[in-house]
Simulated assay, not measured.
Amino acid sequence: MSKLPLSENDSRATFVHPGLLHAAADFTRITSKVNAGAEPWLTGWNKLIAHADASYTAAPVATVFRGDGTSENYPNLYRHAAAAYALSIRWKVTGNTSYATTAGAILDGWSNTLKEINGTSDRFLASGLYGYQLANAAEILRGYNGWTGLSATVSMLNTVFYPMNHDFHVNHNGAKIDHYWANWDLCNLITMQAIGILSDNATMYNEAVTYFKSGAGNGAIHKAIWKLYTETGSTKPLGQSQEAGRDQGHTTLNIAMLGVLAQQALNQGNDLFEYSDNLILAGSEYALKYNLGYDVPYTTYTNSDVTQTVISNSSRGTIRPMGELLYAHYGVLKGLNASWTERYRDFVVNNGSGAEGGGGDYGPNSGGYDQLGFGTLLYRLDA
């Protein structure tokens, strides 16, 4: 299937499907590796199927609360989204419709029940982190003839999630433009972009891409990765993240979400990986080198709220399933020097018994579900 080269000035509303994190050719490759019993894909497959139970039952709610300690129920949403994603992939690879039926039931339950996301300002984290996950499950499942819930899922995402994504980028919850850390912008960007693709809405898709390139908040690429260095002894650029002085959990989250944004765009023929001289790669190399225990340069970061004079070692060495996606593109497809990203990929894989895991494998709470994961199965390419 041909790619669709979109730009900010392109008003067409036709997208390649499937075309979020995974394209049709990806599933052909993945299925071939699994059927051949090839490693490390088979280990990755076994990790995924452990999260894809055809007897899974969801318990959707009408109002999701995040940030309201007395009413918080948002774990329902991220756990169900992760399950629907894993189930849809298991169906796509095996052809067993029992997994598609269960994934569809999860999505239908939420699309027929969810009316709003509420709570403190953290509600905007929920609108960002979980919308793209639901959209990715639906994008895969749209190829199943037995599922009739696509339009209802699209409607729910457009009426519950997108207005919050848009409002956050326009108003930032009434705060100064540099108040919210980059991860708040980025999670809402990847959901806005995903809903745009799922619902064939080029205006929405282009809104996300334009903000990535030139938005006012900290999630725009030149604010999210704002200071460049040349690595000592090489010509490799290293890019300091906006959250490097805060902690490494959020720093790595930012890099992971930039990878999602770029991968979703790439499957529509729009290469954000290469944007601004591969700036995402520079950010990945900086963050992952530091999280592997090596020193990196640092420049004092200042905004309206903080002055951070040193890089933070809080959560240093954090493990996220993110390196497979980034290294597959930069190191294998592009042939670029992505050595720290590769080493971090291997660090996570080796700590996961041979493959990246998925939701819940990196902690039972919200942080353990920030990435959909399973990158060894889904993104690993032959050298």
Rank of each mutant, 00 (worst) to 15 (best):
N183H: 09
R12Q: 12
E139M: 09
L281D: 10
T309C: 02
N337Y: 03
N254R: 03
F168A: 13
T341F: 05
L292Y: 10
Q268M: 03
E8S: 12
L150A: 10
T318P: 00
M192I: 05
W147D: 10
D247R: 12
D295M: 04
A152F: 04
K33H: 14
N96F: 09
S151G: 12
N218V: 01
D200G: 04
E324R: 11
A138G: 07
L141W: 04
L87V: 09
F212K: 02
M164T: 03
D122G: 12
Y379D: 12
N9T: 11
Y56H: 15
Y330W: 08
T14R: 15
V306A: 04
V310R: 10
A135H: 07
D277E: 13
S353R: 09
R123N: 13
A224I: 04
Y56W: 14
T57M: 02
L20A: 12
Q371T: 13
D370K: 03
S353F: 05
P163E: 11
R66F: 14
T235L: 05
N96G: 08
D10W: 08
Y132S: 14
T307G: 07
T235F: 01
G331K: 10
T318C: 00
L325G: 02
I280R: 01
R90W: 02
I140Q: 08
R79D: 01
D53P: 00
L325N: 07
G323W: 04
E274Q: 11
L42I: 13
L129M: 09
H179D: 11
E8I: 12
V296K: 09
K33M: 13
V170R: 12
A175R: 15
P237L: 08
I106G: 05
G245H: 13
F161S: 05
Q193E: 14
A100Q: 08
S111K: 12
Y379M: 07
R142D: 11
N9I: 01
S98V: 14
N201H: 05
G19L: 04
A83C: 09
Q133Y: 04
T97S: 10
S88K: 11
I30M: 03
E116F: 00
D295T: 15
M1D: 14
E116I: 00
V260T: 11
N173Q: 13
T251S: 14
L292T: 13
N183S: 10
Q263P: 00
V170C: 01
T302R: 11
H80P: 00
S155Y: 00
T94C: 07
Y344I: 03
N136Y: 03
A175Y: 14
G259C: 08
L381E: 10
F65S: 10
T251K: 03
A328S: 15
Y229W: 14
D122R: 11
A38P: 00
